[in-house]
């Protein structure tokens, strides 16, 4: 009788553990994606509503004082045509886990968007909407387009994807040493993890600011419309 009880309890425990693992995988693969897509779309909506409410003609990019970004708040939208025609994600301030589950995260200690220095952004490769799933397909010359509501910034990739180790913080320096840039400029760095489901390495691309245009002039050519 006791043997029976032990065997039955053990079986129930195994079934419970199995169900738990399956549920967790479903959570990672599916549910975090649903939540990230919702949060990302809501964030872009909020930004566009904010931008629609403020006068655009105020001042073009160079004269503008960089607004202090608020941690966890979105301030720009990124478009990467190579990753898909409708690939668009909000960029939020900070790179904490609670920020990155809602979009791309701007390294707080790096330059603001469009300014001299290095505008560095991190994003998930897998889970939470898989924003950077196709990161290895990025090539030199590809456009990375951002808007902050007043200006379109078109960056062009110079180097990458470059594989490095997680401790290599020099990749987000104002002039990243291994990028091939030889002086101060308006740069952009994207970081994500590598391999796809691991965390042993990081993938990096570097880009420089190629063109800016006021939003009143319409979408940049790199976006194809």
């Amino acid at each position: 009788m006791t043997v029976r009880l032990v065997v039955r309890s053990l079986s129930e425990l195994c079934i419970t553990a199995g169900a738990l693992v399956v549920l967790f995988v479903a959570y990672l693969l599916y549910w975090t994606g649903v939540q990230a897509a919702d949060a990302g779309a809501a964030q872009i909506d909020t930004l566009q509503r904010e931008w629609a409410g403020t006068p655009v003609a105020a001042a073009p990019a160079p004269a503008r004082v960089p607004a202090p970004y608020v941690t966890g708040k979105g301030f720009a939208v990124m478009y990467v045509p190579r990753l898909g025609r409708d690939w668009e994600w909000p960029v939020l301030e900070g790179t904490g886990p609670d920020v990155l589950k809602r979009g791309l995260g701007h390294y707080a200690r790096t330059a603001p968007l469009g300014a001299t220095g290095n505008f560095a952004v991190a994003g998930h490769r897998r889970t939470h909407g898989d924003p950077f799933k196709d990161f290895p397909r990025l090539r030199p010359g590809d456009a990375i387009v951002l808007t902050d509501g007043t200006t379109w910034f078109t960056y062009r990739i110079d180097r990458g994807p470059y594989r490095t180790v997680p401790g290599d913080t020099a990749v987000v320096d104002p002039v990243p040493r291994k990028s091939g840039f030889d002086g101060p400029g308006r740069y952009l760095t994207l970081t994500t993890c590598d391999p796809e489901w691991g965390s042993s390495h990081r993938l990096i691309v570097w880009a420089h600011l190629d063109a800016t245009r006021p939003v009143t002039d319409g979408r940049p050519q790199a976006l194809g419309s």
């Binding site: 790179t95 904490g96 991190a122 998930h124 997680p166 401790g167 965390s199 990081r202 990096i204």
Partner: peptide, 10 residues
């Protein structure tokens, strides 16, 4: 390990 996408160990 799926969440480590930054280079500063955050």
């Amino acid at each position: 390990p799926f969440n480590d996408v930054t280079v500063d160990g955050q």
